[in-house]
Structure formats: C-alpha cells, structure tokens
Design a protein around this nucleic acid. Structure first.
Lengths: 199, 199
DNA sequence: TTGGTAACTTACCGATGGTAAGTTCCTCGT
DNA sequence: ACGAGGAACTTACCATCGGTAAGTTACCAA
C-alpha cells in the first residue's frame, strides 16, 4: 500500500524503536525493521540515510517526547507556583514518562554509541532539554542574578541525577515513581534552592 | 614478536580504547585494532570473544580505573574527616580523572550500546562503583540509621550528576575542574547532608 | 628428544550495511 | 485528456567486515 512520506517515516521510527530497544543497535538489521513495516530496505535508506541516521532519528523523537512531557507538567502546575513545586512536578513527570515509554528510554541510553564525535542532531536536542530546564529556573519568582553558567550546570545536575536514578530503578521493581521522585528532589532541592535564591 | 597473554591483552585494550574513542563502536574495525597492535584479528577473538566483548573489556578497565582513582582520593583525605570533605574530594577526583583520561570517558558513555539487555559484566562493575560510594556514606561519623535504598539512591544521584556535568563541560573549555566540582558539590551537598544526618 | 600447549597466522565464509538503476503510480499544468 | 515530473517503492547487486576452522611456529617441561 502506498503511503505519504511523513506517515511512513513515523511507522519506520516506531518499528525501529522497538527493534533497537529489544535487540540493541548492533544486533538490529535494517532488513528486519523494513520487514516489520512491510517495506524494503532502500526506502529506509532514502528516508534516513544510514543505520546510525535511523537511530539518531529515533533518539531525537524519544528525547523530544520526553521534553514535551516535562514541559506539559510544568505548565499544568500553574505559572506562578513556587519553584519547589514546579521542580518536583518536572521530576515526577520524568519518571512517569520512563515508566510509560520503556523502549524510548532504552534508546536514549544508547545515544553514546552514535554521538561519539559530536553528532549535531543529538547534541542540539540535548541542549534543548537543558535550555528548557534553565528557562524554568529563570522564570522562578524571587530569583536573583545568578550567572548563566551556574544555572546551566544545575540543570545538568538535575537531568543527570534523574537519568541515572531511572537506570538504577529499572532493576528494582520495589522503587515506585514517588520513591524515585522523593530521592531526587530531596537530595538536590536543598542545595539548589540555597544556590538559586542567595539569602 | 611473541608476548605473554596478559601483556598482549593490555596492548590490545589500549589500542582498542583509542580506536573506539576516536571512531565510535560501529566505525571501528577489528582489523584496524589488530593492525595497530601488530597482530592479526583471530588472536583478538581468541582473547576477547567478540567485538562487543572487546568493548566490554575496555569499559570494564576504564570504570575500574575511575573507581580506583576516587577511592584513592577518599583514602588520602584521612579516615575520620567530615563527610563533606570526603565527598568533595571524591567529586574532584572524578573530574580530574576525566580530564586525564578523555578516551576512557568517551568509552564509558558508550556502554549503553553494549549493555542493552543486562550485560552482566558491565552491570557488576557499575554496581561496584555505587557500592563504593554507598560504603563511603556509611562510614561517615554521626550517620543515623538510614535505609539502604535511600543511600543507594543518593549514590546514583551523585554519580549521575557528575557524569552528566562532565559531558556538558566537554564542550565548554572555560569550565575548569574546580568550577565543575563546585557546581556538583553545592547543588547536591545541602540536600544530601540533611538527608543523611536527620536532625 | 619429544609431547604438549600457548601464541599466532592464513584463508575463508556469510551476513548485512549500503547503492544503482529502475518501475509504478499519483498529481498537476496545459 | 494527457503527458511531464516527481514521489513512493522495488529488484538486484556489491563490498566490507565480523567471525571461524584449520593450521603453524615457538617455547617449556619431563
């Protein structure tokens, strides 16, 4: 069946996400992805250029979805809520997203394999996420003049903490979303708040 | 020239670390690694089993070196120093190690590519690092009865924060070791200390 | 000397990433 | 209505490279 490009690309990305997540990058064959979609290999190459390009596109989509989920949670908590609440809502949204999109997160963890020498696409999407977090900090009421670099560094700390706790939690079914949220928020919030609102 | 196995393995690991770091896993050919060592491919397969096995071994070595570097710094700060100092020394040692072993860190970031479905070797070495951090927390003077899970979670937060800040810093030459250390310590220490020593 | 084993090579296969050259079908301008 | 053009898609193919089988050479111990 003939299908417009945008739609076909979505189908391919969805299939590739599954195969990459369950087999890993190396063990995934382009023919298998193509077969699942009901298409042949050269079409995928026409649309995504290479195997790494396909993985890049998958990761980009996953990271974008993740960012949108957290931004949505920030919006839902209200524009002038205290920073602590906004912060907690974002962390919780992160873990909820991971629970709901396990394959996407497996993919995100593989980005080291493809971003070896500064893949610009991956790098830019990464920076988008950091920038969104920084913007949230900046929008907080009662925030003094904090240097940009410090703010960026804090955003990286939060994101890094969330990602690593998510990996750790994958092997421990006993740790729920709320537990994970509590661990990140309570370890990071104290230092963060005193940094961001110097008394 | 004929060389005993242990020595050859080290040579191969060193060469592989360089090639993996500069080309990435996919673009690295076993023949190139072999050629750099002055050996042929089947020998590498005899010693490491597969391409992924070789990467696993590289990552294992890199992570072990990293862990040893941080443990050394903990020892050098004295056995009954306050936790804050031990903590800061460990974080600083982490960033110093990354600066001195750039290729090793590029490698560590690629572990997602190979640890897709619970590579036991990688997983165990990861847990060693967490366990070492947990043990350091445990050894702190005046630490109350903190549940094990919380302690583990905190360790993951710290490690995740360090790793991500290291990646972020790679693109920003202006951020020195001390800046990075300050960012991690000040964002995490406040919350951590009040968690670990409930007043 | 010789048996055994550790270190290493030559020669090969098959899978798979990647491509060239089409073919079919829809659309749009005249 | 109809042909040009391009988008969607296929067949058939190549070349590289991960992996292996079967050997060969050097060392060492009895």
């Amino acid at each position: 069946m003939r299908v417009p490009r945008a739609e076909r690309e979505e189908q391919i990305l969805t299939a590739a996400e599954q195969v990459f997540a369950e087999r890993g990058f190396h063990a995934t064959s382009m023919d298998e992805v193509a077969e699942r979609v009901g298409v042949t290999k050269p079409l995928i190459y026409d649309y995504f250029g290479s195997k790494e390009g396909l993985l890049s596109a998958c990761i980009t989509r996953a990271r974008t979805q993740l960012r949108e989920a957290t931004e949505l949670s920030w919006a839902s908590v209200g524009p002038d809520a205290p920073l602590s609440e906004v912060f907690e809502a974002g962390v919780r949204a992160f873990f909820e997203f991971i629970d709901a999109h396990a394959t996407a997160f497996v993919l995100i963890r593989q980005e080291g394999a493809v971003a070896s020498q500064a893949n610009p696409l991956i790098e830019s999407i990464r920076e988008e996420q950091s920038a969104a977090t920084v913007a949230t900090f900046r929008a907080a009421p009662g925030l003094g003049a904090v240097p940009e670099e410090l703010l960026e560094g804090c955003a990286e700390v939060v994101i890094g903490a969330c990602e690593r706790v998510a990996v750790w939690r994958a092997g421990r079914p006993g740790i729920g979303v709320e537990d994970a949220t509590a661990i990140v928020v309570s370890s990071v919030w104290g230092g963060l708040s005193s940094l961001l609102t110097p008394r």
